[in-house]
Amino acid sequence: MSLVFLARENLPAWIGRLYQDMAVFAPMTINGVAAFRALGQDEIPDLSRIPASSPKAAVFPQTETLFTFTSRKHADDLSQVDIDLSYHLAEVPRVILGARPCDARGLKLMDPVFGGKVKDPYYLARRERTIIVSQACAMPDRACFCPGTGGGPYDPAGSDLLLLPVADGWLAQGLTEAGEKLLAQDLFTPAGDREPEAQSLKDKAEAYLAQAPDMRGAEQAFENLFKDEAFWDQATAGCVRCRICAYLCPACTCFNITDEESGLKGERIRTWDHCMSYMFTQEASGHNPRMQKAFRMRNRIGHKFCYYPQLHGGTVSCTGCGRCVRACPSGIDIRRIVESMKRKGA
């Protein structure tokens, strides 16, 4: 497919037009931290930084209503109550703008979870209405390791449209029909001879990431180390059990379900959950199969690098985006854990 050019100064106009037809999720930088959000009118995203959060909330919101329930008491017999249940699926089309290739891959990792044997209608309704416009990573940083998970800074997988950075804008490459459609605008001009410039940035980015450790093929090592409590204790020593790693992860999908009510009305909500929390597996009886944080970390690593790959043809549930590494308050680096696991458990 041919490339077209979008000048940096035309980005706001393009977003303005997209905004007419769909919700736009894009990174906004505040206080030095870029995070995805649904843009308001005339808000201009910052595509220059690697966003601290992933855009997964666009398809899997941190909180969503599964259904509402309303109790109706019978006027003639107040002990008789009818309960009405109703639910609503997303209808508004949306575009994720400024996703990174690792983010697009993250959605691809979530798809088989929510669209497998059991179909999750809430996720699928959003997913079907979502267009992904990714920006290739010309400037990966030291926390990035996408090639080690099967991706790459210019990996087109999962994107509808890929923006390749050049000095004064982007070369846009349509990858799907939906992506191509977004290009049918006078704001885009022929790419001319800009392709070598984009190519050279790509080469540099890939060279920068050449040392990324391979996170794949650790299934056996994990199983071998499963009972090595000292290993997991050490890997988890600094963990303060916050939820950063799971909440910023483009591939984490675990969730909680709770009820909230007020008077005769209420709703059942689904919220992101986190496996490093003691409460995650705490049973009402008092029994907890993952009492210690080391066991919870073991499950976290196992899920991403053993159980998920065993179910999905060796693909790890990690895109190498590096967000957990960048933001961990204790500097825990998932690369180091998997590397030493592969070494010790070989």
Partner: peptide, 24 residues
Amino acid sequence: LERRMKCGVGLCGRCNVGGTLICV
């Protein structure tokens, strides 16, 4: 077996023992 379960249909992710989900 018993585990803490939420969704009961294999999605919420807490009832696993290894790659096996107690709920499904």
